[in-house]
Nucleic acid binder design. Sequence first.
DNA 1: CTATAAACGAGACGGTACGTCGGGTCTTCTG
DNA 2: CAGAAGACCCGACGTACCGTCTCGTTTATAG
Lengths: 188, 188, 188, 188
Amino acid sequence: MTEKLPGRPRDPGIDDAALAAARELLAEVGWEQTTMVAIAERAGVGKPALYRRWPSKTQLIFEAVFNWMTEPVAVADAPDSTEWIQRSFAYTLDLFARPEVQAALPGLLAALHDNPDLQSSLWREFGAPGIDMLGETLQGEGAGSEAALDAQATMVLIIGSSMIVRLLLSGENAAAVAARLPRIVNPL
Amino acid sequence: MTEKLPGRPRDPGIDDAALAAARELLAEVGWEQTTMVAIAERAGVGKPALYRRWPSKTQLIFEAVFNWMTEPVAVADAPDSTEWIQRSFAYTLDLFARPEVQAALPGLLAALHDNPDLQSSLWREFGAPGIDMLGETLQGEGAGSEAALDAQATMVLIIGSSMIVRLLLSGENAAAVAARLPRIVNPL
Amino acid sequence: MTEKLPGRPRDPGIDDAALAAARELLAEVGWEQTTMVAIAERAGVGKPALYRRWPSKTQLIFEAVFNWMTEPVAVADAPDSTEWIQRSFAYTLDLFARPEVQAALPGLLAALHDNPDLQSSLWREFGAPGIDMLGETLQGEGAGSEAALDAQATMVLIIGSSMIVRLLLSGENAAAVAARLPRIVNPL
Amino acid sequence: MTEKLPGRPRDPGIDDAALAAARELLAEVGWEQTTMVAIAERAGVGKPALYRRWPSKTQLIFEAVFNWMTEPVAVADAPDSTEWIQRSFAYTLDLFARPEVQAALPGLLAALHDNPDLQSSLWREFGAPGIDMLGETLQGEGAGSEAALDAQATMVLIIGSSMIVRLLLSGENAAAVAARLPRIVNPL
DNA sequence: CTATAAACGAGACGGTACGTCGGGTCTTCTG
DNA sequence: CAGAAGACCCGACGTACCGTCTCGTTTATAG
């Protein structure tokens, strides 16, 4: 189905090299210093090759961080809601502990603010699958008609608190607080 | 006590005018367009007057948003933990609904990332008072020895979910989800 | 011979456009108002394109005025020293009457002061050809062994007095004084 | 006659200190680096004290260099025009050999260009006395009706060539050329 | 086996924000 | 009131980054 376009095909290695370079630079020097030129240099690539693939720096970094993260989420097969919450917290807390994710957050937030339709797309791709799963589980556990809303709210709590605990706390206290989070979240 | 410095004293009105101008611009045109020149023009002030007071754009905006927000929070006198959580959610959800706060978040996160000691200072000034209050209330309600940790975790859940619900959801769904949040957070 | 450099070549039209814009602005609004931004705007060019070519405003203006002026002087074929002096005065008085040359003089003097090797290069390129010609003519007219020095001194007198008459006098008086200058300069 | 003004009288020492500081800075660091703040610091004086006395940096430096130079010129009592020219050259060549005078020239030229009435005032104060003297001497030596114009032209030649020989030549060649100048200038 | 079309590295381009600095004016307090 | 200190406005300077555009070269498919 993918029609064979004429001309030289794109080098698929460039995509990976650029995304990896972006992640490394984010972790090492932060958002500000992660320049398009710097990404291109580290990837051994020219700037136009980047702009042929992503329309802006924001989108490149977005994909670098989040396509990396939306890989095997696999919280799917939790037996009950408690277990589901536990596993989701574990995954999300790990995610926001990654230095490149933390470094990418400023740019991500700016993009969310300027580009509202990114909100829904992010929410849909990242949150929706797990939310549906949790909603069904809750209904099986006797939740009322608003099980879907509760599932969304639960996801909001998990994501938000994971972010905040990584941004504002550190050291042993962060670990201790993080360990208490799942017990407090109780949608039933 | 404050020694009399020689020379013309700084005009204190400039501080307020600049901070107000920064807040207005953040709400109106967003982080990118909130230029130092634009702040100076709206405040009726020269650029050097801004750089005499704040070493960079980030620091100016940080103070503009957060010195404004660390006002009297006054959730203090809640009769029980349920009520405390309800009121805290109301306050925090309102806070992150403000457009200038949303617009300032990218800069805030960048500052948190580059300047780790800002973490503790922000957590202490913004979260600590309410957390202590909640901790005592919980202990009075029969919580165990880890009431203090649970209070911190509860605050993390409130702040984080308020931020996420404002950033990722919108419209009626946001309101509905926000309304379910307090019921799910249950530290006892 | 000129090695092929990689990358997009510099647009040669920008050089000319910038130098022309600089000359026009000098003539119209003077040295102070001849801003780099103004030059860029008039040339239809960005500021970085200027700084890629010249390291500072002074150097740009220097080249704008003096590469323009070191064109074919062609006073060469004067039959005797009197005629040579007459023609040189005519040329030099015209030169310093040009508004962009007058406007550029401050920058030129500053450059001469800060960058001494510019002295000799300017003297060599601008003065030397005519001086040699005059020296030979003088020797043919019976001048002594110091004809070369006298030729240099004559050139100094012509350049200097042309500059001063344009800077310090004006109106009819300037014209009358300028007309008497060649008669007074008499190297024989 | 000089009315007694009320209030504290101006400290006369400040004038000299400021002018001396300006001359020193011009000679040491050039026109660009000779800042009003720098002059004030070296003179042990505040900036407003400078602006109380001179309306601009240009005028301050102008006075610093030229009131210093318009001291006893004393070419007056030359017996004939040849001697007058000789002495004037000696004086003017010395003047333009001074480093602070050379450093001040850029600013002076800029001021002449922007402020045309400065031309006549400078010409009148600095050139006129000697020119009148030379004009009378020439008339006594049998010059025609245009002795006044020739006197002006002679002065233009002396000033201009002295400036150029100092700006464009250096070392032994400068001295040799300068020595030949008076012989070539011959108004009769 | 050549022609074409597109991708590639390098880097110039317009635009614009940043942070610094100098000139000239003003406002405080001290003598 | 003069004077020192220094804040103030204005605006130019030079740097950096973004996203686009031309170069000349390379490479895969089409004919």
